[in-house]
């Protein structure tokens, strides 16, 4: 554990709290892509199957439980409790175009070819693109509420901080995982355009609005 990973995990946790709090307080999931949230639930489910097979630390176990529980809670809020506010007309990204290639790639490029490992690899690949339905939704409506922008910024920062963690770990322990690194870089690059808009607009008190 180093400061980069810890702040990365905290950014991830903060993103989830921002999202749940926004939906709960406003009693609405307007502007939130249910499809991205379904993909994240799939990511955590396939990655954290190792909860029952391997133990790393109480911290890891606790965080895995939190990520799993909150991802399903988010889906419940979007698709059940506040279903009427779900903006499904703008949430039209075809998620099979992300799930199937991620699965195919996981079957081809992995560290070991066994069930748990392929699912772990699938979760890494899928996570790198899971935000696309949400970004697609923002681009389709041309704007995002500030709170949604804060959520996206925290969520994007998390993997960017993990990249610093991986550089640090390589320098200090010689540890590296190419699959996670390449996917993490792809994931962070996907947020770059958003990061630019966030820094130039949202932080200056303006609404995140895309140029027409």
């Amino acid at each position: 554990m180093n400061i980069f990973r810890l702040t990365g995990d905290l950014a991830h946790l903060i993103a989830i709290i921002i999202l749940l709090h926004k939906i709960w307080k406003s009693r609405s999931c307007a502007g939130i892509s249910g499809k991205s949230q379904v993909l994240f639930a799939l990511v955590y489910t396939t990655r954290y199957l190792d909860l029952v097979t391997s133990y790393v630390s109480i911290y890891n176990t606790f965080m895995k439980f939190v990520f799993l529980a909150t991802s399903y809670a988010t889906i419940y809020l979007i698709y059940v409790k506040f279903k009427a506010t779900y903006d499904h007309n703008h949430d039209t990204f075809r998620i099979e175009f992300l799930i199937l290639p991620s699965l195919a790639l996981a079957l081809l490029i992995n560290h070991y070819f066994n069930f748990l490992e392929v699912l772990w690899t699938f979760s890494i690949y899928l996570e790198s693109v899971a935000i696309l339905p949400q970004l697609f939704m923002v681009s389709k409506t041309g704007e995002a509420e500030s709170i949604t922008s804060h959520y996206l910024f925290a969520l994007g920062s998390y993997r960017a901080l993990y990249i610093l963690n991986w550089i640090y770990r390589y320098a200090t322990e010689g540890h590296y995982d190419l699959i996670a690194i390449v996917a993490g870089v792809v994931q962070t690059v996907l947020y770059c355009d958003f990061f630019y808009l966030y820094i130039t607009k949202v932080l200056k008190g303006k609404k995140l609005q895309l140029p027409a």
């Binding site: 990973r5 391997s54 790393v56 965080m63 990520f67 748990l116 772990w120």
Partner: peptide, 10 residues
């Protein structure tokens, strides 16, 4: 266990 060493992150 090799797997533990590989995936000790979240």
């Amino acid at each position: 266990d090799v797997r533990d060493e590989l995936h000790d992150e979240l």
